[in-house]
Simulated scan of single mutants.
Amino acid sequence: MGHGRLREDKTCDNCGYIVDKSYCSQCGQKNVETRQTFGALVAHFIEDFTHYDGAFWKTIKYLLFYPGRLTKEYLSGKRQKFVPPVKLYIFISFVTFFIAVSSIDDEGPDLSLDNTEANTEERYHLTINNKKIYTPQQLDSVHKTLPEDEKFNAFELWFEKKQLEKGRQLGEIDSSERGFLKEFVPLLPKVLFIYLPIFAFRLWVFHGKTRWYFFDHGIFTLHFYSFLLLSVTLLEIFLFILSIVLTDDIVDAITIILYFLNIIYAIFYLFKSRYNFYKEKIGMSLLKSFLLLLINIFCFFILFIIAAMYASYKI
């Protein structure tokens, strides 16, 4: 859709370059009159909106249902038809974590100091072998006597000691969990952002250095993680809608099934997108994808533990 009357003056208003036809070959600005009618303004709005809308929905379709194709199309030079990878990742990341933060329950019991009922509750404690434990020292002592299969892992032991050190009342525990989530969830986009170049570096190590640039691996990484975030976001929106019309028990059962299916599809997506983009032999592609999957699960686990420990210190 064209809009705006062309100027008779062929000097570009933006950069001063001579315009051959409609658009300046130097900066790309259209050589139209700056003062336009209301109809031209409406036409301009419709053109920009439909262009972005078309690019956005086409990008989402390729991202969800055609593993690796979006990256191939983008790197082949067909970039005008799609949302740029960095903008796509930032937008999806913002929506994902905005929903996650918004879903944290802000409601709970009144835990202010003048709440007599809360202040008369018993302090937080653990009960192990019918013995109540109120201090980290007591926990250490009892923990040593437990059978190996009943002991806490390192993170659980550290976390429980932190709760005992703070000596909160039982009524405050729910509030503490919400506080932890409020600190932990906003850390996740930062953790993922830090991890993106690490994932791209691993792709660079796994593939031919002469055929692929690090930039190519970076685009593949942005698209893959945009897919992961988008799939989780769509799933959470769908489950929220279900929670309005169905009982909690049914929604819980559906949640388990859908998250399991989502994980299976994400694994398949990694294998398929790598195979379609890098065009390796199927056996080698499966082997490298499997190694990448194991490495990334391990690294994510370490990063999330670090983020969880940091969030625990902040509450």
Rank of each mutant, 00 (worst) to 15 (best):
F224R: 01
E156K: 05
F184P: 02
F201H: 00
G218A: 13
M284W: 15
Y265V: 04
V251A: 04
L258D: 10
L187W: 15
K144Q: 06
H223L: 05
P186C: 01
W212L: 00
Y265C: 14
S285L: 06
I250L: 13
P197M: 00
F238N: 07
K166M: 12
I264G: 08
D216E: 06
W212N: 00
H223I: 03
K272Q: 11
F155E: 00
W212G: 04
E165N: 06
G283Q: 11
P186V: 02
D216K: 01
F193I: 04
N262R: 08
Q163G: 12
P189C: 04
N276D: 01
L270M: 03
P197T: 04
T247R: 08
F268N: 12
R202V: 14
L235G: 12
F215Q: 06
I264H: 04
V251E: 02
K281P: 02
E280S: 12
F206H: 05
E183D: 10
F260G: 14
L286Q: 12
L242N: 02
F220D: 01
F240S: 03
F227S: 04
L287Q: 09
R202N: 15
I194E: 12
L286E: 10
Y259K: 12
E183S: 10
A154R: 09
F152V: 05
A266K: 12
N153M: 10
E172N: 07
D174S: 13
L258E: 08
F227L: 01
K209H: 09
V185L: 13
F159A: 11
G171W: 07
Y265E: 11
K272L: 11
E148D: 06
G283R: 11
E177R: 13
L192K: 03
Y275L: 13
M284F: 11
F199G: 01
L188T: 09
F277I: 03
